[in-house]
Amino acid sequence: MAVCIAVVAKENYPLYIRSVPSENELKFHYTVHTSLDVVEEKVSAVGKVLVDQRELYLGLLYPTEDYKVYGYVTNSKVKFVIVVESSNTSLRDNEIRSMFRKLHNSFTDVMCNPFYNPGDLIQSKAFDSVVSSMMVQAC
């Protein structure tokens, strides 16, 4: 399962970032932050070729020694980033996809909340619990 899940706004600032508590949180901030380069590159590359049938899932953004970073971008350019451990080989592309889909659904619910201002940090408990279900259970 994921060790870090982040939602990044269109303007590339974090709306939500959560990582396994045992790890150095700042490290994940850096990981997600630098992954945005790749996201932007991929999005712009996709934009050139196929505008309409865009795939939201961006796939593996980049692997590091310990982690794999996956990206997903919504039509409104909100980015989801999921970091999983490289050692976790059980996760296939399909599982990552479904995680993103779940995340997207939950995010849509957050946006539907009339009391949520787009652009604010996400503080929804429902969203939090969805994220928790996808995170590695710290033991």
Binding site: A9, Y13, E25, L26, H29
Partner: peptide
């Protein structure tokens, strides 16, 4: 503020 506050602060 629109930015990656955690890393900027660091």
């Amino acid at each position: 503020h629109r930015g990656w506050a955690a890393v900027q602060m660091r």
